[in-house]
Design a protein around this nucleic acid. Structure first.
Length: 182
DNA sequence: TTCGCGATGGCCT
DNA sequence: GGCCATCGCGAAA
């Protein structure tokens, strides 16, 4: 299980290192697993694409807290966004989880590779909503992240982040990280 | 294949 | 009142 020290680092590095790791979600006696395939870094007071650029509010307060907590918020009235807080306490930063490949074993023991290629689809699969906002993923309860035995040998593509064209110069930062399709 | 748009509600000015 | 770190559908091409 990934610990506080893993998350308490430079956010784009954490975002990159999370690729290939596995979300584990324990909910109502069931376990859901999925490999992280796409992430995005949001960092500091001057990143105009980040909620924290407008200062601390009730909504984004978790971003200012200790690393390893989950920042969950609602967007477009219907989708929950899942982030994991990074860096030192007091410095607002987080990694948005944009893509996951669920590990699903069917009745014939085949492993399907259905890609969840969007942050709203990720939270639907992991059954995440506001109730988990602020949850500590270093506890190993309900929701946490595991390092894989072997990292996938897939190329990492760095691109500008999605949906933040309003963010002035920050829109060009290549803080979206994605495992190349294999 | 891409494009346009409606759903839907909390947040911020 | 406008905007938003989105998604899925249907039409156009």
């Amino acid at each position: 299980m990934l610990d506080h020290d893993f998350y308490n680092r430079y956010t784009p590095t954490v975002a990159r290192d999370l690729l290939g790791c596995f979300w584990v979600r324990e909910c109502r006696g069931k376990i859901f697993r999925g490999m992280i395939t796409e992430t995005e870094a949001y960092r500091g007071f001057h990143d105009l694409g980040s909620h924290a650029a407008k200062g601390k509010t009730e909504r984004n307060a978790v971003m200012f807290g200790p690393a390893g907590r989950v920042y969950v918020y609602l967007i477009y009235g219907m989708y929950w966004m899942l982030n994991i807080v990074t860096e030192k306490e007091g410095y607002p930063a987080a990694v948005l989880i944009r893509g996951v490949e669920p590990v699903i074993k069917s009745k014939v023991h085949k492993v399907s590779k259905v890609a969840l290629d969007g942050p709203g689809k990720v939270t639907r699969f992991l059954q995440i909503d506001k109730a988990l906002n602020g949850h500590d993923v270093t506890l190993g309860e309900k929701l946490w992240i595991e390092r894989p035995k072997q990292l996938p040998r897939r190329k990492i593509i760095a691109s500008p982040r999605i949906g933040i064209d309003y963010a002035k110069h920050a829109r060009h930062w290549k803080w979206n990280f994605k495992l190349d399709a294999s």
